[in-house]
């Protein structure tokens, strides 16, 4: 039985009736292009950053909305759901995704390939599909498992350069990794009551959750070996975590194990530390490397995409094709 249209209606309904869309659609209908570009600006070029709670909330809604939209694109790519292009639901998605004030947000400032491809798709610039609806369902389960993990989100913020407190008591990603020198401290953080949780505790727990996520994602991607295009597209859903944050998460997570093993004396513990480190190295090398990226990049349409009609920093419109924008993903991470 072909359930692709039923799946399409369910998935697009989930997006269009969801809290994120209900918060964003009126915004795109009522605000000027300049106002929207201001909300979805690059935080690094703003000397104050993003501090207005309303802006923070809208940007969180947008990040979550982009994830759901990317899922719809993956569902089409895997043959799980029918094509949204030309349908009313597709038009409503395009009204936000294709808005010139938003596009720089995912094309340039916080670079994500799947929203770019989905936008091109809705402009009738499509790539080949690779049918495996079951693989998509398994991916969606993985996404659901980790989507609302607060500690994982805290760890990702640390990775992106966030810090808590003031010098000399400042807590950064380096504090999180250093904490692993004392394994008892890690266990205490993992089981501390909610009222006593510190940002450092959250970062520590977040790293453990991140390691569990990476282990699950790597296992899943390896099962998708026979589906190279989908394997690559699924990896791209999370590529930002592995390629775009300031800190190299592979080096940091391996350093965490090395720190924990620092004071182990007996040969049994040292062997276990070495085994854990080797396993983590395999997982993180695969996820932060370039092997998973190449297959989807090969499929990128050659069409130029414009950046930043309302880019507050560059002013001028710059054009480049999608493949060159993600060219660095075809090489190992350099920092």
């Amino acid at each position: 039985m072909d359930n692709s249209y039923d799946n399409f209606k369910y998935l697009t309904g989930r997006l269009l009736l969801g809290a994120d869309h209900l918060a964003l659609e009126p915004l795109f209908q009522s605000k000027s292009d300049e106002e929207l570009a201001q909300i979805f600006r690059n935080h690094e070029t703003d000397p104050i950053g993003i501090t207005d709670p309303n802006e923070v909330s809208l940007r969180r809604h947008m990040d979550s909305w982009l994830n759901e939209a990317s899922l719809i694109y993956l569902s089409w790519l895997s043959g799980y759901s029918s094509d949204p292009e030309g349908k009313d639901q597709g038009n409503r998605i395009f009204a936000i995704l294709g808005h010139p004030s938003l596009r720089p947000y995912y094309e340039s400032y916080y670079k994500q390939a799947l929203p770019c491809l989905f936008c091109l798709h809705l402009e009738e610039n499509k790539i080949e599909t690779q049918d495996s609806p079951g693989a998509f369902e398994a991916f969606a389960n993985l996404y659901e498992r980790f989507r609302n993990d607060r500690e994982l989100a805290c760890f990702l913020e640390f990775l992106d350069g966030y810090c808590y407190g003031k010098p000399p008591a400042i807590i950064t990603i380096d504090s999180v990794i250093r904490a692993f020198e004392n394994p008892d401290r890690i266990v205490e953080a993992a089981f501390r009551p909610a009222s006593q949780l510190t940002p450092l505790d959250s970062g520590i727990i977040g790293l453990l959750h991140f390691a569990t996520f990476c282990t699950s994602l790597h296992e899943f991607l390896e099962k998708c070996k026979g589906l190279p295009l989908l394997q690559s597209a699924f990896w791209f859903f999370y590529a930002y975590w592995f390629r775009e944050y300031k800190k190299d998460v592979k080096n940091l997570s391996i350093q965490a194990i090395q720190n924990a093993a620092m004071n182990t004396k007996d040969s049994g513990s040292q062997a276990l530390a070495s085994e854990s480190q080797d396993r983590l190295n395999i997982i993180m090398s695969a996820l932060t490397g370039n092997d998973y990226a190449s297959e989807l990049i090969k499929q990128f349409p050659a069409t130029d995409i414009g950046i930043a009609s309302f880019d507050l920093t560059e002013k001028a419109t710059v054009k480049s094709d999608l493949a060159s924008r993600f060219a660095a993903y075809n090489k190992p991470r350099t920092n």
Binding site: I186, V187, T212, T215, I257, A260, R279, L280
Partner: peptide, 11 residues
């Protein structure tokens, strides 16, 4: 995950 596997034994 590999980190927990080791921490659980070292703690």
């Amino acid at each position: 995950n590999p980190i927990s596997a080791f921490i659980g034994s070292a703690a």
